[in-house]
């Protein structure tokens, strides 16, 4: 794939994932405001998420959208501020992996409540 096509696809991917995140973040903010009333405990959180497939699917979509959106954004920032270092690709990939692995682990953890 030529550089041009790659840049175009990355731009597209970031904007599409942005649209997904727009919805997810709006819902997430609402959930945050609901959840923090009266303090936050593990019991409460797990009470809502454990065994709740809907929550799990929603948040996994959220994680996947972040996995696409954030590394491309960070790559742009790095490319423009530290162009010569050649660190752009490794750092973006590292962030992508962290988000994917830690995020999915978190979703599994909240869904199972440690019961696996």
């Amino acid at each position: 794939m030529s550089q041009a096509v790659l840049q175009a696809k990355l731009w597209y991917a970031q904007r599409i994932s942005a649209m997904v995140l727009g919805v997810c973040v709006a819902i997430h903010l609402a959930i945050i405001f609901y959840a923090i009333r009266g303090g936050l405990t593990a019991q409460e959180i797990l009470g809502r998420t454990q065994g709740n497939l809907g929550f799990a699917i929603f948040y996994e979509i959220f994680v996947l959208a972040c996995f696409v959106h954030a590394p491309i954004g960070v790559a742009n920032i790095l490319q423009e501020n530290i162009p010569q270092a050649g660190m752009t690709k490794p750092i973006s990939w590292l962030l992508a992996l962290l988000i994917l692995i830690l995020g999915t682990t978190a979703v599994i953890g909240l869904y199972t409540g440690g019961a696996i």
């Binding site: 030529s2 041009a4 096509v5 175009a8 696809k9 731009w11 597209y12 904007r15």
Partner: peptide, 18 residues
């Protein structure tokens, strides 16, 4: 241009493939 080029990269344009 961004939209045009992105679409061309993914689906091709009326003038041909990017």
């Amino acid at each position: 241009l961004k939209k045009l080029v992105a679409r061309a990269a993914v689906r091709g344009s009326k003038w041909g493939k990017l």
